[in-house]
Every structure is written in C-alpha cells, then in structure tokens.
C-alpha cells in the first residue's frame, strides 16, 4: 500500500511534469539558437536568416530555370502570414498541451483507481 501511495504522489505532480516537458523541448532549442549567437554577432547583418527553401531550394531551381509559383491560397502577403503562423502555433500548442495532459492524467487516474481498489 505504501508503494501505491508513492506512485500516485509521483504522477500527480503536474507542475513537475510540465517543467520536464518545457526543459526537454526548450532547453536544447534555446541553447542551440542563442548561445552561439554571442560568438557570432555578424549573424545579425542584413539579409541573414533566410530559410533554406529560399537560399538552397529556390536558388538552385532558379539557376535551372524553374521558378516557384504562388501557392493556391497565398497567405504570404504583409503581416497576414504572421497572423496565420500565430494561429497555427496557438492551435497546435493547445492540441499538444491537451494531449499531453490526457496522456499523463490518464495514467494518474489509472493509478488512483488501482490504489482505491487495493485499499
């Protein structure tokens, strides 16, 4: 019984779980992007940070006489693209958070019911 209580306690700490998830995703990302920038100030110059779709894919295609066409629904107009990306990020972030909660709380509920049964 003591072991069961211990397990439930471990799973029921959502703050710890969220912290772990944030560390897993954010720490490598932030370290990867920001730390080398301190040694590479020229990276902030004009014309930097183009995507490889532009700097590689479209560049080579253009050299071979193939130009990219506008997409069917062209959201690449002014700040519209920023808005669409923000919306996509919000919806995706909500879906990821909701699914993660279902995944972890599903386990916690399972542990609780097992604990109650054993008592």
């Amino acid at each position: 019984m003591a072991r069961n209580t211990g397990k439930v306690h471990r799973v029921q700490r959502p703050g710890k779980t969220r912290k772990s998830l944030a560390v897993v995703i954010l720490l490598p990302l932030v370290t990867f992007c920001l730390v080398p920038l301190t040694f590479c100030p020229s990276a902030f110059g004009a014309g930097r940070w183009t995507g490889v779709d532009e700097s590689v894919v479209e560049k080579f295609a253009s050299e071979q006489g193939r130009e990219a066409r506008d997409p069917l629904i062209n959201t690449d107009q002014g700040d519209l693209l920023l808005f669409v990306f923000l919306l996509a990020g919000a919806v995706g972030g909500f879906a990821a958070g909701y699914s993660w909660r279902m995944l972890v709380e599903g386990k916690a509920k399972g542990s609780e019911s097992t604990g109650k049964k054993s008592r």
Partner: peptide, 25 residues
C-alpha cells in the same frame, strides 16, 4: 506551461522559412 506556450508561439510566429519544396518547382 504558459512560458512554454509563449516562447513556442514567438518562435512559430515568423514568416515561413523552411525546407519544403515550394509550389511549382
């Protein structure tokens, strides 16, 4: 979680700069 979401959104909210092969190539 809020911090995580905010930073994710800040990173996502940028013009598309990626590797997919564009339309018509």
């Amino acid at each position: 979680v809020k911090l995580f979401l905010c930073i994710t959104l800040l990173l996502v909210a940028a013009p598309a700069q990626a590797m997919h092969i564009s339309e018509g190539i």
